[in-house]
Design a protein around this nucleic acid. Structure first.
Lengths: 113, 113
DNA sequence: ATTCAATATAATCATATACGGATATACGAA
DNA sequence: TTCGTATATCCGTATATGATTATATTGAAT
């Protein structure tokens, strides 16, 4: 189907918007996202699944981790992301960006648990 | 609040998308929209109310009719509408555009009932 | 002021979606 | 093959949203 309505349904959730925003700066694995966003793993994973089902993100396994990245062949998504950068200044987003700076730290935390 | 999530919630409905699309070509009253879209008046009206609550459309009374138009001061909406014109070619939208050509006919039908 | 036409809202029902906690799966490493 | 870790899914529940039908409201015209 791939209807416009379904595309916007995927965007109509704060958690998924935060994920897409973070991924717009580069690929991340699930444990990095849970670390950066301070959200339960199940919650992050469930939303990632929906994004993947909707073809908004893609995955590849990198050793122990599963790396998520934006589906850069999704033209509408990419166009939207770029205009969002201009219009959005949500508190969550700012915080996420700050935490994103420590993405390598979060990755190491995953490894040692 | 005016959160991004709520903005996309408003877009995550086929009826509301059709309305926004039609209004992107110019203002229309409720009875014209029901005529063009072939949808029940209550349905159209309820969705228009939501769009108005979310500041995506504005209204002015024109004699007997209430004219709806896009909130052209909503920068994100306007940016989005313009990219949608490039990416969307839904069947509904095509049909709506065809019917839009007869908007004056639909307006007259309102007057005579 | 009353009436009528245009639009809005209410009530009910059905469906969809999110969450938390627990558990399952899958894959790399030993 | 077995174990451990990273990720995914299930279950139960709470909430949200949409369609339909009927009714209410609002303002213009008489």
């Amino acid at each position: 189907m791939n209807k416009l309505e379904d595309f916007f349904k995927l965007l109509a959730d704060e958690t998924r918007l935060r994920v897409l925003h973070l991924l717009s700066y580069g690929p991340l694995c699930v444990c990095q996202l849970t670390g950066i966003m301070k959200e339960p793993q199940a919650k992050v994973s469930r939303h990632l699944s929906k994004l993947r089902d909707g073809k908004l993100v893609k995955t590849t396994r990198q050793e122990q981790f599963i790396e998520y990245r934006l589906a850069d062949d999704h033209a509408l998504l990419m166009a939207l992301i770029s205009i969002l950068h201009d219009y959005q200044n949500d508190e969550y987003w700012k915080q996420d960006i700050q935490n994103l700076a420590f993405k390598d730290v979060f990755l190491n935390e995953c490894k040692h648990k």
